[in-house]
Every structure is written in C-alpha cells, then in structure tokens.
Design a protein around this nucleic acid. Sequence first.
DNA 1: CGTGTAAGGAATTCTGACACG
DNA 2: CGTGTAAGGAATTCTGACACG
Lengths: 101, 101
Amino acid sequence: MTSYKDNKVITIGTVNELTGLSERQIRYYEERGLIYPKRTKRGTRRYSFSDIEILMKIADKREDGVQTNEIRKDMINKKKDTDIRDEMLRGQLNAHFKKLR
Amino acid sequence: MTSYKDNKVITIGTVNELTGLSERQIRYYEERGLIYPKRTKRGTRRYSFSDIEILMKIADKREDGVQTNEIRKDMINKKKDTDIRDEMLRGQLNAHFKKLR
DNA sequence: CGTGTAAGGAATTCTGACACG
DNA sequence: CGTGTAAGGAATTCTGACACG
C-alpha cells in the first residue's frame, strides 16, 4: 500500500518546481486542510507524488475560481464515494464467502 | 518509462535517512560511477527511488567487503545481460512480423 | 581504497506578520 | 480569501582538502 507514489520524501522546493505553485501557496493549501505533508524531526515538510498530483488538481480548480473551501468539500465527497464502494465490495465478498460455507 | 520510481526528486539528506549511508559515502559512490543523481540549476543532487535501491544493494556488497570497482563491473555486466535479452527479443519479434508479411 | 571531518559560502525552509483586497 | 514579501534564525548542501590506512 505504501508504494513510491505515497512515500513522502520530496521537499517543498522540489514541489514548487514540479507544480509551479509558490511555497506560500503550497503551505496555505496545507493550512486549509487540502494536503498533509509529513514533517521531518527538524520540522521541514516532505511531500509524496500523490500530494503533487493533488496539488496540480488544486491549481486547476483555483484557476477556475474555485475556493479552497469548495475544493476540500469535493475531496471529502470523493473520499466518501470511494469508502462506500469499498464497503459495498466488502459486503459482497462477505456474502459470497458465506454462501461457500 | 519515466515513472515515479525513476523520477529524480529526492535530496541527499533524505537518501541518507532512507539508506543509512552517510552523505560522504553517497557522494563517493557517485564519484566511482555507481550512481548518477540529477543536478538542479543550483547544483544540488536529486535522487530517484531507483537510485536508493541501487544504493542499498551497494551497501550490502560493501559490507561483504566488495570494492566499488567490482560493484561497478557487476552492474555493467548485468546491464549487458539485459541489453542482450532485449536485443534477442527484438530479433524474434522482427522475425515474427517478417513471417506475417 | 573508503570514509570521517572541519571550513566557508550559498541557498533552503520555517514561522509569524503586515499588506492588499 | 488567497497570495506576496521582508525578517531572522536554524539546518542543508556543496567543494576541495587533510587524515588514516
């Protein structure tokens, strides 16, 4: 589950290069609850490739004038969808194995 | 081909954390031709997850007393093997398509 | 040969704040 | 609300070199 994609090892400077977003923007989106970088012992932020993809989507929406508040809600809803799908799948598998017993 | 795994975005400090190798060691293995980090405009090194895997293999071999020179030769030979396999595969595909014409 | 270390400089990252709007 | 910026401090990274062996 923790593949390269989700490994938080990238500094904010590199994220800036990769996304074109300013460090100020990147930190602000964190403050608004859109991303959650890891912190090293010393306190510097580390991002994953997943974080970078999320940031690029955020950048797109911001360009369309969508507020961080809206973006966050959308992300939560999409997560809910995924959770529901997961739950349904689990339920079906469960029923399936029950039948086999 | 350029997946997350081969994307050179990790600083030497993080590589140190991930591999346990000192910065001195990491730079020395580069000097010996075992790894090739990217350089940013400013000149700081950036490594990929692939580089980190190679470094961990190097660390193992060094513990067994294998010299950097030997390690490099091994790496070149393995690359040659891969190249030969690729070439053979290409040849077979070629023959196959020739037949189809 | 492989690795540690001190040296000095340059660039990075962090936080809290003021600014504009 | 979202983002820029100057401020000051602390940690990072780089190179060339001396050291030991």
